[in-house]
Amino acid sequence: MDKDNGKNEEQPQEEQSGASSLVQKIQQLGQTNIPQSPDSNVHVLSVIGQVEGHIQLPPQNKTTKYEHLLPQLIAIEQNPKIEGLILLLNTVGGDVEAGLALSEMIASLSKPTVSIVLGGGHSIGVPIAVAADYSFIAPTATMTIHPIRLTGLVIGVPQTFEYLDKMQDRVIQFVVSHSNIKEEKFKDLMFAKGNLTRDIGTNVVGTDAVEYGLIDGVGGVKEALQKVNELINTTKTDQEVIQ
């Protein structure tokens, strides 16, 4: 403590403003400073909370708005300084169309992409996670696979059913074509009974997701960074060969 006080006296002005902003931050959101580091060529997109689509959710919800992420993905594709992308996923799911839009955008990026599922990548988080070139899941993370559903008033039940069925097929097709899971297995997990309290489906834990072929590997930040750098190097050498 004494040492810190000594430092404060040496640089009174700077320390004071630093201290007051620190106090402000602690008061506001309980967050302190984060360490500085040099520039990186890998950008990070976080998909946190609910994936917000056509309907604006109440302010108390933590949401990822797809209209914010889509332009960022375009910018990442365009910017030559950015060589790779890491996707951080901790989502409960959300709007199916918004999730599919994000997934398609990520899958169609030319730059190497690696996703990490931390905590949870539920529901529509599954296609977003598999959309990356390589996907990781933390050993404790889970992914809930369940059929898509609708809340609110339904008009025209047979037509709505048809529509939902087609939408579900789109999700299944996307996941099957972007991961190593077999369609049969994915459908089995999706329609399994007795696993979830109020729904049919399965809650797949980290290692199981890898076993089923849904996710490519168990890992975290270290593995993801290694993988993205490896992918960047391979794309660089490929380009050199073409040239």
């Binding site: 902003s21 931050k25 506001q28 959101l29 967050q31 984060i34 580091s37 950008h43 960022q72 950015i82």
Partner: peptide, 19 residues
């Protein structure tokens, strides 16, 4: 902060809670 650049998150001015 709506940015994909991890370095932006190290900028104090953008950290959540800043007035």
């Amino acid at each position: 902060l709506l940015s994909s650049d991890p370095q932006d998150f190290l900028n104090d001015g953008f950290s959540p809670g800043t007035i």
